[in-house]
């Protein structure tokens, strides 16, 4: 298993370098000169030249890229033009809430999706099955912000049940109520695809020999479904969750903006709107690396769930 993970890590290196290169290019192709932006509109030519030298903008592109990688490895992502704080500091402050939001969404979506998908598969062709599948198609077709708008309007505003702007603190420190609506918004998008694939996977497994054997042994139906069918059906479902990571990340950017959730996505959007290039670059890089990491974790989980993968 260890070998498998190392192999997978090595494969992600070219993708990581690609991500870094694209983020590096981001500042290269921006129409405005970063040195001029940092120096401000009234800066003298010498000041701009000094900043250019400080940032290494006067050197060749490959050298700049190499230096950029070294700087990233040191954790130096430059300074925000707007807040004048280190970008790494800004990211350190915002990454926690983003992870919290994504985990919260998964905690809501995965159990509900698995339960609904299994329920639909076990009652194949029934009214329950059809209702669940119809809801899942509707769920996949709904813009994240639509779900958010409805939750804000009713649960947050009209019924005043939960807070709907900002984050009051970490989950373990009284922040749970402020997490519920954003996590529910983001999680709702994932329930549909998870339910749909779980249904297909469970249906496939229910016809397998080992399920028949389990039934023939006289095991209770619940044990057969949960221990034999669902465990095996988890393999494609985990892959799907990996594929949905892009969705989750994109959804997180929208959800954070809607609920004023102080995460990386909102930081990125704010930075782009205010032309704060170093922050935008850092935030986009962190989000892309987060995406690579999620896919890596999914692959590792895959090996754990399906020991056959190891032998391939």
């Amino acid at each position: 298993m260890g070998q498998q993970i190392v192999h997978r890590l090595l494969i992600s290196i070219p993708a990581l370098v690609g991500v870094l290169f694209l983020c590096f290019c981001l500042l290269q192709v921006v129409p405005a000169d970063p040195a001029m932006i940092i120096a401000g509109p009234d800066a003298k030519a010498e000041t701009i030249a000094a900043i250019r030298q400080e940032l290494g903008l006067d050197r060749s592109i490959p050298v700049q890229f190499f230096e950029y990688i070294l700087r990233v490895l040191r954790g130096d992502l430059g300074r925000s033009i707007i807040s004048n704080r280190m970008v790494s500091e800004e990211l350190a402050m915002t990454i926690g809430p983003t992870i919290e939001l994504m985990l919260g969404a998964m905690l809501i979506a995965v159990p509900i999706g698995l339960a609904l998908g299994t329920l639909a598969a076990v009652n194949r062709g029934s009214l329950t099955d059809r209702i669940i599948m119809a809801c899942s198609v509707a769920g996949v077709s709904m813009p994240v912000f639509f779900i958010g708008l409805i939750l804000i309007q009713f649960v947050g505003f009209k019924w005043a049940l939960l807070p709907f702007t900002g984050r009051t603190g970490p989950v373990w420190d009284g922040g749970l109520p402020s997490l519920i609506l954003p996590a529910l918004t983001l999680g709702a998008v994932l329930i549909g695809p998870i339910a749909r694939l779980t249904r297909t996977a469970v249906l496939e497994v229910l016809g397998a020999d080992f399920v028949r054997t389990a039934r023939a042994k006289g095991l209770r139906e619940r044990v057969v479904i949960i221990h034999h069918a669902l465990r095996n059906a988890m393999i494609p479902v985990v892959t799907l969750i990996g594929l949905q990571a892009a969705f989750l990340l994109g959804g997180a950017v929208v959800t954070e903006t809607m609920f004023s959730w102080p995460g990386v996505g909102r930081l990125a959007v704010g930075a782009i709107v205010s032309s704060d290039f170093p922050t935008a670059q850092g935030a986009i890089m962190i989000l892309a690396i987060a995406f690579l990491t999620i896919n890596l974790l999914v692959d590792v989980l895959y090996v754990y769930l399906d020991p056959r993968v190891q032998r391939r």
Partner: peptide
């Protein structure tokens, strides 16, 4: 396919944010 893998490392929304950062919204 390697290029495709790298492109897949950028979720659509991120690409949108990056393009908007470069060319303006």
């Amino acid at each position: 396919m390697r290029l495709v893998d790298i492109m897949l490392a950028f979720p659509a929304i991120l690409i949108g944010l990056a393009v908007a950062a470069i060319f303006g919204a």
